[in-house]
Design a protein around this nucleic acid. Structure first.
Length: 506
RNA sequence: GCGCCGGUAGUGUAGCCUGGUAUCACAGAGGCUUGCCAAGCCCCUAACCCGGGUUCAAAUCCCGGCCGGCGCACCA
């Protein structure tokens, strides 16, 4: 069933395997013409959403010098060798210098260990040419030089914002809280990228970093706007909420525990549907800031993009699955019929981890904390494709339709002459030009029968079809056909732009 | 990364076991027809993942690679 979405996405130019002419490479996709439109619409909606929140956008490099990730903890967190136990399949990191001998035994069950390879999720590169050309046989100084020229592709967009914290604080005239966001590419050299857009090696993230005085986390100035909102929450089983002491211990304790326990919410805490206010008051969600942003995430996904509310829930990370920088984290998970529950957004409380790590407390009293809604744009695009896809019986035919919310639909409308007669084509082209001139991205299509063209537009999720017939030539009205209901209304050409409203109530 | 299975026009497939360069459908281009939901007719375009081996001959058999699916592991 879901493979049909993938098939449609390929056939209609949403999503293509990248580098196909050279045999492909796992974990990379090309967005075709419609996919790129869809993705841009998601990004645009996201940008607008956080601008309305009062945040400013920044853009920072995708490559950064080694020192950045030394400080951020990313280098340490995943550049070790790894071994896996043949018996119990437990996964262990081996400190860099230690022997990864086949002879060593599994500390859990005593089984034989096998080399699981380099565990390094960051792509390494070089920035400029190191003195000595990076050649071998370099002496101590040259080694140092080379180390300095080492660069990595960022595994998250966030670091670029943290590094600018002092400047951003000045930009905001010294006042907390404030937020900054960024949309951009991030890179992780995944061991086995799989599942369509869900695990990519290059992907687009949209991250907002909210800086707040830790003393003010309990009170969000606009909390009232979200407090009634009901959320489907799955708290982690291990005791309610706050991971206050986790921050420190995390950096060392990355031993063998890592590999245990399934992902995707197996070990469930109890799922509950509560208002944001109740969640915060009862301590299920640690503070108002976190609660506020969780609520906003849901609002964006549901009201902004049209992801069905019943296919979303928020699941809290267990201590052992949290990133090294997080003290608390709630994932927005989307239910995929194909892949099960999957993370599409993470809302993390990063505490003061990052600003402290970079020694950028900003000079004020205490180090600000960071609340971070972090969106996986590609995963959201996948969620939209899957949840919008419907197949229905219409007469003897099956109709495939992508029911995108009209705000994200790649093509806004199609203008079609009822028949391929010159006078109709001429008028239809004029209507088409008019809509284009009005700034709507519309298509024109005169090939085949009218029914065929309607279905073609259904498949790519175009919300409206504007049809020019003989009546148009007399009174300048057209029919506007709505995608989901297939109903039509007659509209004066000049009104087509506003027709959207006519269909809102269907 | 490991194991199992797979890779044929744009898409979905037949052929593979039993070697002799390929079936069908849909889609697409053009034409005829067509007064509102994938109608019909004509014509055209279009494929054996890559490399090596066996053979007179490889889509077909063997090996390797790449990619995909599933399971395990991993997903900071």
């Amino acid at each position: 069933m879901q493979d049909e979405v993938a098939e449609l996405a390929r056939r209609r130019g949403f999503l293509w395997q990248a580098f196909e002419v050279y045999g492909g490479a796992a974990g990379f996709y090309d967005y075709g013409p419609l996919g790129a439109l869809l993705k841009r619409r998601v990004e645009a909606a996201w940008r607008e959403f956080y601008l309305r929140e009062g945040f400013y956008e920044v853009e920072t490099p995708t490559v950064a010098p080694r020192a950045v990730f030394e400080a951020s903890g990313h280098l340490e967190s995943f550049s070790d060798q790894a071994v896996v136990c043949r018996q119990c399949r437990n996964f262990f990191r081996v400190a860099e210098r230690e022997e990864v001998g086949e002879g060593q035994r599994c500390p859990e069950c005593g089984g034989e260990l096998e080399d699981a390879g380099e565990f390094n999720l960051m792509f390494q590169t070089r920035i400029g040419v190191p003195r000595g050309g990076g050649g071998r046989g370099a002496g101590g100084d040259e080694k140092e030089e080379r180390r300095k020229s080492e660069g990595y592709l960022r595994p998250e967009t966030a670091q670029g914002i943290f590094l600018n914290f002092p400047r951003l604080l000045r930009f905001n005239r010294g006042k907390l809280p404030f937020g900054a966001f960024q949309i951009g590419k991030a890179y992780r050299n995944e061991i086995s990228p799989r599942k369509s857009l869900i695990r990519l090696r290059e992907f687009t993230m949209a991250e907002a970093e909210v800086f707040v005085d830790p003393a003010e986390k309990e009170k969000h100035p606009r909390f009232a706007a979200v407090k009634e909102k009901r959320l489907r929450l799955v708290p982690s089983a291990e005791g309610e909420g706050k991971g206050e002491e986790k921050g420190e211990g995390k950096r060392e304790g990355k031993g063998g525990e890592e590999g245990e326990g399934g992902r995707g919410g197996e070990e469930k805490g109890e799922e509950k549907s509560v208002s944001v206010e109740e969640a915060v008051r009862s301590g299920v969600v640690a503070n108002e800031f976190l609660g506020y942003h969780i609520a906003r995430v849901e609002e964006f996904l549901v009201e902004g993009l049209g992801i069905p509310r019943e296919r979303l829930k928020f699941r809290q990370h267990r201590g052992d699955e949290m990133a090294h920088y997080a003290t608390d984290c709630w994932d927005a998970e989307f239910f995929s019929e194909r892949y099960g529950w999957m993370e599409i957004v993470g809302v993390a409380d990063r505490g003061d981890y990052d600003l402290s790590a970079h020694s950028l407390s900003g000079g004020g009293a205490g180090t600000p904390n960071v609340i971070e809604p972090s969106y996986g744009i590609d995963r959201i695009v996948y969620a939209l494709l899957e949840s919008s896809f419907y197949e229905e019986q219409v007469g003897k035919e099956k109709r495939k339709v992508l029911r995108f919310k009209k705000e994200v639909a790649p093509v806004r409308a199609a203008v079609l002459p009822l028949l391929k007669r010159e006078e109709l084509k001429k008028k239809a082209r004029a209507v088409f030009q008019e809509l284009r001139a009005a700034g709507m991205f519309v298509e024109y299509d005169e090939s085949g029968s009218i029914g065929r063209r309607y279905r073609r537009q259904d498949e790519i999720g175009t919300p409206f079809c504007v049809t020019v017939d003989y009546e148009t030539l007399e009174d300048d009205t057209v029919t506007v056909r709505e995608r989901d209901t297939m109903k039509q209304v007659r509209v004066v050409v000049g009104e087509v732009k506003n027709v959207v409203k006519l269909f809102r109530d269907f």
